[in-house]
């Protein structure tokens, strides 16, 4: 099923209440053509399950990896993703924009 914004934040609450480690990722700034608007959410649990999106699927993998670290340490992180560098296989956005994502633990 297509996850709507309300389902994503409800999932964050439900997952946390169920005792799972949970992180919330939010797009806080965008430059140029960005796939998802500021305020978009991705919720991640400590097993790597996730719901929602912060891009068109380009950087979610990297955000999930960082989120696992945030869940463990409890320290929020701000991640920045720019244009993908294809030769280096770096994670990035193919649409040419730049996004900044805040990842915080739900506690």
């Amino acid at each position: 099923m297509l996850a709507r914004d309300e389902d994503i934040l409800k999932a964050a609450e439900d997952w946390r209440k169920a005792g799972r480690g949970v992180a919330l990722a939010t797009v806080v700034e965008t430059w140029g053509s960005a796939p998802r608007p500021v305020g978009s959410n991705l919720v991640i649990d400590d097993k790597g399950n996730f719901l929602g999106s912060v891009s068109g699927g380009c950087v979610e993998g990297a955000v999930v990896t960082e989120a696992l670290d945030v869940i463990e340490t409890g320290k929020p992180k701000t991640l920045e993703f720019g244009v993908a560098d294809e030769t280096a296989w770096k994670v990035g956005l193919s649409c040419g924009g730049t996004i900044r994502v805040l990842v915080e633990k739900v506690e």
């Binding site: 934040l9 409800k10 633990k105 739900v106």
Partner: peptide
């Protein structure tokens, strides 16, 4: 985000009231 903020946020949304989280 603290769970109590998230809970209150979801309550406001369910009641169709606008809300802002200031970070």
């Amino acid at each position: 985000m603290r769970l109590e903020i998230l809970k209150s946020l979801n309550e406001e949304r369910a009641a169709r009231r606008a809300v802002i989280v200031v970070t």
